[in-house]
Write a protein that binds this DNA or RNA. Structure first.
Lengths: 148, 148
DNA sequence: AGTGAAATGAATCTGTA
DNA sequence: TACAGATTCATTTCACT
């Protein structure tokens, strides 16, 4: 991981569909080298996936929420299996604090969110935050492009 | 938005770098048509961005956390400007409940997270959840490909 | 690791239905 | 809206530094 790799990663985070040619120009190295570096970063697992961000509201998902669940440690593996299988789950993290799980979900309506929460109750107490607006939408980090 | 558009969106969410040719084959229509549909979806704002998901730990960001902040409504616009400018912020949502803001952040160390939280105090009371593990990492929704 | 030139393969443009 | 064929453009391979 040198400064060129970091520059490549930064550009790919901003736009995953940027061409090798454009990257080559910006990094002052040739397209074959860019290609080789990207493959290397993929192999190392630093680049995990190329993902398309869509407007969920325009796709009919009007409700976004963070659902917190207090899951008993012994139910964790069942919980993980269940939560993975729900397509409405956009992310799930195990965190410190009273509620051990944070789940980011989207639903077409509050009714569907409600029935999801009801199903979750079997794993433990829940607490839900409805999202009103998103001042900073899903984005990547800018890695420092200094030599370091 | 017909079933072909939904199929295109689903594939792009799984892999933003899939070729038009591959998409054309899977949707049983020609590459130029795929291209036109994608441009149309971009124009409508349904497709917002193509984004690369990286392994933050491997990039040196060992700490991920959700920071909740109780922001006074009159400070909101200052808060938005500030939070937008911090590269460590991966997402920020305005939510219901006692703490009006949820910020997803990554940092190289707990010390850097701590100094960020200190700076946030000027906007209001904070509460932080450190992420231990991520059972479901950032992903998209599968839109139904049925005719509907 | 890096390159330039050739070969391959993909995306766009033009015509047309 | 959709297509097929021609052109343009990007990506990969390869021989070489």
């Amino acid at each position: 991981m040198d400064s060129i790799d970091r520059k490549i990663i930064n550009r790919l985070q901003q736009n995953a569909r940027v061409s090798l040619k454009a990257l080559a120009k910006e990094c002052y190295i040739s397209p074959p080298t860019i290609s080789a570096r990207i493959h290397h970063l993929e192999q190392l697992g630093i680049i995990k996936n190329y993902y398309t961000l869509i407007d969920y509201k325009k796709a009919g998902y009007h409700i976004k929420a963070f659902v917190h669940v207090k899951v008993d440690p012994k139910d964790k593996s069942n919980f993980y299996k269940y939560i993975e299988s729900i397509p409405n789950v956009l992310e799930c993290d195990c965190v410190s604090g009273e509620f051990s799980m944070v789940i980011k979900v989207i639903f077409e309506s509050t009714e569907l969110l409600d029935s999801f929460i009801n199903l979750l109750q079997r794993f433990g107490k829940t607490n839900t935050q409805i999202v009103f607006s998103t001042p900073v939408d899903v984005r990547g980090v800018s890695l420092s492009e200094e030599k370091a």
